[in-house]
Design a protein around this nucleic acid. Sequence first.
DNA 1: ACAAAAGTGTTTACCTTACACCCATGA
DNA 2: TCATGGGTGTAAGGTAAACACTTTTGT
Lengths: 220, 220
Amino acid sequence: MNAPHNDILPVSADVVVFTMREDCLSVLLVPEGKRVGHRWRLPGGLIRDRERLDRAAERNLQRDTGLSGVFLEQLYTFGAPDRVSEQRVITVAYYALVSALNPTATKQMSIGAARLFPVNSLPVMMLDHDAIVGCAHRRLAAKLEYSTIALQFMPNRFPLSGLQRVYEAILGTALDKRNFRKRILALDCLEETPDFARNGRHRPARLYRIKTPGRVEIFK
Amino acid sequence: MNAPHNDILPVSADVVVFTMREDCLSVLLVPEGKRVGHRWRLPGGLIRDRERLDRAAERNLQRDTGLSGVFLEQLYTFGAPDRVSEQRVITVAYYALVSALNPTATKQMSIGAARLFPVNSLPVMMLDHDAIVGCAHRRLAAKLEYSTIALQFMPNRFPLSGLQRVYEAILGTALDKRNFRKRILALDCLEETPDFARNGRHRPARLYRIKTPGRVEIFK
DNA sequence: ACAAAAGTGTTTACCTTACACCCATGA
DNA sequence: TCATGGGTGTAAGGTAAACACTTTTGT
């Protein structure tokens, strides 16, 4: 058996921050170093002695990206010892969802060195962070089927076609407009607002609002 | 910020071992101490320096209960700092499924101090181990709906009614016999054997075999 | 007028549920 | 012969999928 001092390990809480940018599911990454040609990594860092895991994720996310108050859920714990050649780190991975047009979040995100990358063209990343992003993406896609988690990406008021583009970006497939609207409205989690989005040279879109914002419903 | 030496922590891998005993979903626990009136705990222990998480779970499970070679899957990572008053431990929880009539497992389990408890009448347990068992039970019940995970509880050959009792024990509800059989056979993961179980004073039951043992199929 | 996205129903196929009686055996 | 669990089919309801045209606006 190993000596006791070998049985304490550095544990980090890292966060896969998803948001929508230009109808593309994107991930927020921070540079690993300051030189050109550096790799990128997930925001996150070591868990402190008496700190809750989710608090550690929040704190490190805030430090690395300025983000706070976002939807956060534990994903999986990664700990293959070959993750680092020098020193093994166990990573408790979380994922976060950020509303596309959240001005607070946008301002926070634009402060530091963090950058958004489309999930389909990620840069070279530290360690197994690419595998963590893939795992988070699969979890997110699975949750679309049986929860209202996608609403976390939406601003206060939005057209149904916007929500449909979120679903399509995450799933990577096109959806039927009529069936999508029926399905979403049947969940009874949205309500009409009196307002319309008048964007381009086409019919304005009815804006909807989430009935209970902040609550992610699980069904089935 | 804390000093670096505060940012390394003991991490344990603990395992919720489920098995069926007398048509009852049961959990394998080990005594926390040797005195009467002791609490019980999940089998598990500290992760070593360069050890894979799942290997640590396997190793500690084997040490505490003698079990090895079982179905093992990561559940969740628990780490509220109030879990221990003295020293905080992060627990990467796993769950394992053991075939009821597995003679090797039965022999292994009967060696040590580990004991089986029905999931509905658990003893007083260490720390938050009761919450971990509850979490594992919910995960297991959810997985019944979209995977063949329940087959992990079955011996080489078994009647369909035996599998139905497993489903009913995990879900805590009675199921319709005809619908259950249709649904399971439609999965196309079982095949008839030529043999029958002649138990009591009633018609013998056809025995079935898993087409691809060891493989848990995810559908939908 | 036309380009561009919004909005709207019906039909079909499939899957899920409810439900009751006969069969084979051991005692 | 009887008690016990094994084994079987159908009808109804609900959910999911396919599918095309009209509306409203800006240019």
